[in-house]
Computed example of a mutant assay.
Amino acid sequence: MPTSNQPFVRTNFLDAEPAPRSESGPLAWIRKNLLATPKDIVLTVLAVALLAWALPHMINWLFIQAVWTGTDRTFCATAVQGGTQPDGWSGACWAFVDAKFDQFVFGRYPLDERWRPTIVGILFVLLLVPMLIPKAPFKGTNAILLFIVLPLLAFWLLYGGFGLEIVDTPLWGGLMVTLVLSFVGIAVSLPFGIILALGRRSNMPVIKMVCVAFIEIIRGIPLITVLFMASVMLPLFLPTGYTIDKLLRALIGVAIFASAYMAEVIRGGLQAIPKGQSEGADSLGLGYWQKMRLIILPQAIKLVIPGIVNTFIGMFKDTSLVSIIGMFDLLGIVRFNFTDANWASAVTPLTGLIFAGFVFWLFCFGMSRYSGFMERYLDTGHKR
């Protein structure tokens, strides 16, 4: 065989080989995440045992022995309680949720006028979805329609006037009120929180003092106190014969409260931006607002997306506190229906609370997942 002193150089790459079986697949994931150490093994065994004991009971109560249809409490009560179910029966009363579902969504809004909040909900979804898609076009037009045009149109449709029957806000309730409070709180708290955060970092003593005082006072007061003062104390300072709608007071209270917390979240993002970014913007001759709008704020907001969404989630859940001022949000209207004698049974309250909790969880989980998606989408400067 001929030999040569010239070294051999491969002209093509070897084909990629699959990962070892011990390093991929569900068994590898279980071994690495659940059985890596003796402590993990003990905790995994305890967790599996707890789930094995609890899940069958939960599934049995929620689905298997549950009552799904019915017209009154007799379908969800045992024979001893005057119902049709056998003694010892235990299961959720989803018939109660089914019978009251429209009221849970719309509150005491008139039946023949519920097409109006339905249209508002459809328009909200149609405008919100493209706003949440990063690559969707016409973001500016979409934002104007969502945050300016839709609120005005929604107020006209929900309240009435100009050809529509007027529906006073005390008749509003259910999920509709929860979403209205949350949307207004989110739409107002973010820009106001940015302004407060910038004001707190301002070099002008008066503006800084006002912003610091506002933030610290509001953060030191429970939301229940803010709502109580907006509902009870505020009318005492108005001239005789003047009043402010109760829903508007709640909207103002929630927005003010959320703005103070949002300001601190934004301020944390501003402090995380290196000073060189600001100095570089100054060297380009950018003014203060140009520097903030084009350089500083986009980076700061991207860094604090988890904190922003966490504030939104907390505010969404805190809307249930408006029941303290006599408003029936989702949780309030569910609890109000517990007093209906036609559905008074041992399992009705728990079933209603589970339904309300699931709805709150569904919205909060959705916001959390979208937050994670946006973090990954915007994480362009820290990828390895």
Rank of each mutant, 00 (worst) to 15 (best):
G372N: 05
C93H: 02
F75E: 01
I305Y: 02
S231H: 02
V9D: 08
M292E: 13
V177S: 03
L297H: 05
N310Y: 02
P7S: 07
I244Q: 03
L145Y: 12
L238K: 01
A36V: 04
V177C: 04
K100L: 05
P170I: 02
D40R: 01
N203Y: 10
L51F: 10
P239L: 06
W289Y: 12
F75D: 04
W89M: 08
L303R: 09
Q103D: 08
V226Y: 00
P20I: 00
L251Q: 03
R201S: 15
G173C: 11
G83H: 09
P2A: 15
G140T: 14
I217D: 04
F63T: 11
Q81E: 15
V167L: 01
F316V: 01
Y109Q: 02
N142C: 14
F162G: 07
K139C: 10
I215G: 00
E279P: 09
I133P: 09
P137K: 15
A16W: 01
A54F: 10
Y159V: 10
K135F: 12
A19Y: 05
L123T: 04
F257H: 13
F373H: 12
Q299H: 14
S259W: 13
G140D: 14
T351H: 00
G161D: 14
V210E: 00
W68G: 04
A300G: 06
V254L: 15
L46W: 15
K32D: 13
G381P: 05
F124G: 11
P110V: 00
T380L: 13
V265S: 05
I308H: 01
V254M: 14
G372T: 06
D282A: 15
W61F: 14
Y109D: 00
K39A: 10
F75V: 08
P137R: 13
P86I: 09
L111M: 14
L286F: 15
F192D: 04
I122D: 03
F358E: 06
A346S: 15
G160L: 02
G161S: 12
F363R: 06
F124M: 13
Q277H: 09
I221V: 13
G160T: 09
E264W: 11
W343R: 04
V347Y: 01
A77T: 07
N60G: 03
L223V: 15
L132G: 14
M315N: 06
L321Q: 06
W53R: 11
L46R: 01
A341G: 11
Q103G: 02
L14T: 04
Y261P: 02
F96Y: 15
N12L: 12
L251R: 01
L150G: 00
I215W: 01
P130T: 07
Y377K: 07
N310K: 06
A263F: 03
I217W: 01
V180S: 03
L27N: 06
W172Y: 13
F237Y: 13
L152T: 10
N203R: 14
R293F: 12
R376H: 11
L362C: 00
N5F: 08
A36K: 07
Q277S: 10
I186K: 01
D72G: 08
T3L: 11
W89D: 09
